Computed example of a mutant assay.
Amino acid sequence: MAHFIDEKCIGCTACVSVCPTEAITGERNSLHVIDPRLCIDCSACVRVCPVLAIQDEFGVYKPRIPKRADWPKPVVDPVACTGCNFCVEICPFDCLELSGEGDFAGIAVLTKPNACVSCRECEEVCAKGAIIVMPKEEKHPALVLEGRA
């Protein structure tokens, strides 16, 4: 189920600028809509809506998080990451890069944290479970278990 914009929408277009799948359309100063076929339920739009007009996939209005620095970010477990590059390729805002050089591809690294909208596409594509998108104050569970957090 996709996010939904209600009649409180003022048409500010803030949600349009952060949507990684271009699922949100509408004219400035008018009600915007979310295409449920394109919405990936990432909540980026919710975090920027100044009037709390967007419900998440469960029909809940979540609070706005004005500073991108406070948004959840991908955390990579360097032991589990195999450098497959899938997360780098899928990131809609080019926030991730591989750190290695030469024959070794390295591990995924968040290089543009302010561009990241916490869409979770990197987390979804990671077959090894090496990436988890979480609030910055939390640590990746594997890192905590191994004493590297």
Rank of each mutant, 00 (worst) to 15 (best):
M1S: 11
F4Q: 15
F4N: 15
I5L: 14
D6T: 01
D6P: 07
D6V: 08
E7W: 12
K8L: 05
K8C: 10
I10N: 11
C12K: 09
V18H: 00
C19S: 12
P20C: 11
P20S: 11
P20N: 06
E22A: 13
I24F: 07
I24Y: 00
T25H: 13
G26Q: 06
R28V: 11
R28K: 07
N29H: 07
N29K: 10
N29S: 08
S30T: 08
H32L: 09
H32A: 04
D35H: 01
P36M: 15
P36T: 12
I40S: 04
D41M: 11
C42P: 02
C42F: 02
A44V: 04
C45L: 03
V48C: 09
V51R: 07
V51Q: 06
L52G: 12
L52Q: 11
A53Q: 02
A53C: 14
I54G: 09
Q55C: 07
F58A: 13
V60T: 11
V60I: 14
Y61E: 05
K62F: 01
R68F: 03
A69T: 11
D70N: 00
P72K: 03
V76T: 12
D77H: 09
D77F: 01
P78S: 02
P78F: 00
T82E: 13
G83R: 09
N85C: 10
F86T: 01
E89G: 10
E89V: 14
E89Q: 14
E89N: 14
C91I: 11
C91M: 06
C91L: 14
L96G: 01
L96Y: 01
E97D: 10
E97C: 12
L98H: 03
S99P: 12
E101R: 08
G102K: 07
D103M: 11
D103Q: 15
D103Y: 08
A105W: 14
V109S: 06
V109Q: 07
L110A: 08
L110I: 05
T111E: 03
N114I: 07
N114A: 08
A115S: 12
V117Q: 06
S118D: 13
C119V: 10
R120S: 06
R120F: 06
E121K: 03
C122W: 01
E124H: 04
V125K: 10
V125P: 01
C126V: 12
A127P: 14
A130K: 08
A130H: 02
I131Y: 02
V133Q: 07
V133M: 02
M134E: 10
M134K: 01
K136S: 09
E138P: 12
K139L: 10
K139P: 15
H140K: 07
H140M: 00
H140Y: 06
A142K: 13
A142Q: 09
L143P: 10
V144K: 00
L145A: 14
L145I: 15
R148L: 01
R148S: 05
A149S: 01
A149Q: 04
